[in-house]
Design a protein around this nucleic acid. Structure first.
Lengths: 339, 339
DNA sequence: GTGAAAGCGCTAACAT
DNA sequence: ATGTTAGCGCTTTCAC
């Protein structure tokens, strides 16, 4: 139950601890013969570096921290998987934290990651304004990339999807599928995703001359329950729209349920679209037409930015990058087929 | 961009570094006056302990590692949430790792957690046999609790659900709901969950004199796709059973879809049950009758065992505990109402 | 109750 | 190419 240290390897190989360090991890030249002896000794003893000692010495941990708003939201877990893929290629590990949709918890997690000397942080902020101070403060101390969502003063790197382009795809499709009046169901405007998507929705629906009734923009939260409630409001108010555009798939699944509960057929009487393309979007009935986020690409860009920031770190802050990737529309059965 | 150290706090408070350490974290007595001065100095400087230095010194990290088979399985993410709750109460943090359903990745993650000196590990092994060596090896070095699933030689602590009791609940319900022939759809017998559940299924169906056809036990993996395929096999073979018992909710959702695709009504012609009670079990149509796992309780027990093992660690290994909690049946619309 | 000093395991200067 | 040594920031004897 005793941990093998570098000193024991050194003794066994008949060299100094410095040489062991260099032979195993160092960039510095060590003779082939010695390297071989050291490797052998290390293997025999079952030596593994102590990352804690190394981190204390190097102030580098080869670990990236990630904070997501909610680990139970399938979109974020799929994003986590993609980030792990991308980091794996660089030999880095991921320290994942759940903010539990609470900016206070989020701030704690960020502080904890900083104090643990992670090499960089990937965060999708829970709240558009309340998360701002913690995120910006963290960004002053460490390389930080915002993913998907972002907070107010966008002075940090960000990677996400082009929400405006996404809404163009969605509305163009609905227009082609015969919709003439549309509604939008999102979360309260406390995060950038809904904000951007709503802006895109308004702009494109105006351009296409799609009617948006006065009570046709409903904001709640990212949940099935809210989608269900929103569908109720739209239908019970009379004159429901031809189509409902949702800010994420969970909401869209709820809207679909709400419609069914009230005997409104989807897509027959009312078309529904989602956003994110989570697995259940494909599995629900009717399968959801939605916007597919290029997760792997998003994750890869984020990891790249983080690595770049880590290197440039010495040479003071460089200009921050905002990378908006263009998403794809996945057409399924919750919207009408287009000629 | 400079990190405040204990030395600076000491200087400002006019005391030694040892005193600062004792005043802030130590159990040792420090005069009230000095404590106050130290606290003040620390606050003014914005001091926060460096967990890495502390860990190197103490070989304790106040961090627990957790490894789950798949972070995209909603059951495991909900379990993670519960574990976080339980740990939060002890002021510990969670280092979460995804094994990507691969024993090789799992072994790497376990090794990494060990080398990072986490105080203990909670793991739900991906594989009943292939995970065994890594899990047992890890358990020799650190307090370790298996959650939900477990590997072969159960010489470590384990917390989960009483699968046999669960199957009794399920089959008793189906029997009361009029089913006379039943089938079972699970994953290959490479993990304890399916194994136990299948054993419980066989025993109770025999006791109740429920018919289990020769081709009525289908094993694949924990996925919607497999459930769908399995439903196809059962139906296409002719003489489908009255009810299909599934080893988890994802499979059950798939079976339901498969039935619908073939025009078999659920629960009219065929009843379906799941296991876990993930969120989508409630949301699917028809809503799924399933076994609810007492996640919070499972998590709390796991954390308690880990803490106990941590303390007892000095006094050599104590007997390991196997805690099987009794689950509840949640009756919804995928089974027929009972008188 | 408080201070001085050693040392956790590692790596980067600085020798040689 | 290799060895010697200092020190990352903290806690904990051991003195007083």
């Amino acid at each position: 139950m005793h941990r093998v240290t570098i000193a024991e390897v050194a003794e066994r190989a008949g060299v100094s601890t410095a040489t062991v360090s260099r032979a195993l991890s160092g960039g510095r030249p060590v003779s082939a013969e010695v390297t071989r002896r050291v490797r052998k000794a290390a293997a025999e003893l079952g030596y593994a570096v102590n990352p804690i000692a190394r981190a204390l010495r190097n102030s580098r941990t080869d670990t990236v921290g990630m904070v997501v708003p909610s680990i139970s939201n399938p979109f974020f877990t799929s994003l986590v998987e993609s980030v792990e893929h991308a980091l794996g290629r660089d030999g880095k590990e991921l320290f994942l934290c759940d903010a539990q949709s609470d900016p206070v918890v989020e701030a704690k997690r960020l502080a904890s990651l900083v104090s643990r000397n992670v090499d960089g942080i990937i965060v999708s902020p829970t709240h558009g304004t309340e998360s701002a101070s913690a995120v910006l403060e963290t960004a002053r101390r460490l390389p930080l990339v915002q993913l998907d969502r972002f907070v107010g003063g966008t002075s940090t790197d960000w990677v996400g999807v082009d929400d405006l382009a996404a809404m163009r795809l969605v509305l163009d499709h609905l227009h082609a599928a015969g919709a003439r009046s549309v509604a939008f169901v999102g979360s309260l405007l406390t995060n950038s995703s809904t904000e951007q998507r709503l802006a895109g929705f308004r702009r494109r629906s105006a351009e296409l001359d799609l009617k948006v009734g006065p009570d046709s923009v409903l904001l709640g939260d990212y949940s099935v329950e809210w989608g269900e409630a929103a569908a109720g409001k739209l239908i019970d108010a009379g004159e429901p729209p031809d189509a409902v555009v949702c800010a994420d798939d969970l909401i869209a699944l709820g809207v679909t349920r709400g419609c069914r509960a009230r005997g409104v057929s989807v897509p027959g009487q009312l078309q529904v679209t989602g956003f994110d393309n989570i697995e259940f979007a494909r599995l629900s009935d009717p399968a959801l037409t939605t916007v597919d986020q290029p997760r792997e690409r998003i994750a890869a860009e984020a990891v790249r930015l983080l690595a770049a920031a880590g290197k440039a770190d010495a040479g003071e802050k460089q200009a921050s990058a905002h990378i908006a990737l263009v998403p794809e529309l996945v057409v399924r059965q919750s919207t009408k087929p287009v000629g």
